[in-house]
């Protein structure tokens, strides 16, 4: 096993591309090292991307926020502007693992690891976030919902890796929220989760929305019908009931020891309603 610390994204991409054996990207390592220990993966090459310039920075840009792929989740809630603009994204990322894990883990890693229960993923999908993917040929962008391909699989090709996550510019009167169900109070994996992101107008009518569910299918879902159901409303009770029904209907969950199909389906609706209420309040709606 070899270990490389490239200082440019291009160099990292070409190391990943040229490797004949199994190459893995190391950012926070909170998934990779556990898998190595368990013998699930045996890398021939580890490419530590943390020395790449700018990859540990959060930048406020004209088009929103650019969060470097190696920014640890613990750094997100230290950025006041980011917390103000995207509280749902930050609260989701700060639910991953323990404080110790948050000191290392990254949203880009959470996304590439492609667990259906990843906390930050539904929040990023609801936010309309994109990832910047770099290869030796250049870079391309992909919507977050298009990154996971299945349980533990993603749509990145050999030689590609994520260098940043881009959050769009925030319209006034917008809010987002993320909720998950776990049987404990902390340090657990979502049984069901939901993120809602919305914008309202001066009268409190929802003009834009995105709704995403986690842990109820092989990948996190973008539920477009759910967003449609709340757009044009003031999130009255009938709308909330409809939102909950649509979210429950969108679930294709598994039965396992952490939750049955029936439980996950019902709770998805409940969380959608509550996340929408929080997002609406955060947007300034009453």
């Amino acid at each position: 096993m070899r270990y490389e610390v490239p200082v440019t994204a291009k160099e990292a991409a070409s190391l990943l591309m040229k490797e004949k054996g199994k190459a893995f990207v190391l950012a926070g390592g909170t998934d990779l090292l556990v898998k190595m220990k368990a013998g699930v993966v045996a890398p021939d090459l580890i490419v530590d991307i943390k020395a790449i310039k700018g990859i540990k920075e959060i930048k406020k840009t004209a088009t929103g926020f650019t969060i470097g792929a190696a920014v640890p989740c613990a750094a997100l809630d230290e950025n006041a502007a980011l917390v103000k603009a995207w509280p749902g994204v930050v609260e989701a990322a700060n639910l991953i693992g323990s404080k110790q894990v948050q000191g290392r883990c990254t949203m880009a890693g959470n996304l590439c690891n492609a667990s259906p229960a990843a906390d930050s993923v539904p929040a990023l999908i609801a936010a309309g976030a994109k990832v910047v993917i770099t290869s030796s040929k250049g870079s391309r962008k992909l919507a977050v919902e298009d990154v996971p391909a299945g349980v533990g699989r993603n749509n990145l090709k050999k030689g590609e890796f994520i260098t940043a996550i881009e959050l769009p510019k925030r319209a006034p009167k917008s809010g987002d929220a993320y909720l998950r169900f776990i049987p404990r109070t902390e340090m657990d994996i979502a049984v069901v989760s939901c993120a809602v992101n919305l914008t309202i107008d001066g009268k409190g009518i929802i003009t834009k929305a995105r709704v995403s569910l986690g842990a109820v299918a092989i990948t996190a879902l973008l539920v477009k019908e759910a967003a449609k159901a709340i757009i044009g409303t003031k999130l009255d009770d009938a709308t909330k009931a409809k939102l909950a029904d649509i979210c429950s209907a969108a679930c294709k969950p598994i039965d396992d020891k952490r939750g049955t199909v029936e439980f996950r389906t019902t709770v998805a609706g409940v969380l959608a309603r509550r996340a929408a209420e929080t997002a609406y309040t955060r947007a300034g709606g009453k």
Binding site: Y3, V5, L26, G28, G29, T30, L33, V34, I46, D48, K50, P72, A74, S98, K99, Q100, V101, G103, R104
Partner: peptide, 17 residues
């Protein structure tokens, strides 16, 4: 590690340069 609480079992020694 560099001001952040981490699990040392989830950090590689090689990363410490």
């Amino acid at each position: 590690l560099d001001g952040r609480l981490v699990c040392s079992c989830l950090v590689l020694g090689a990363e410490m340069n």
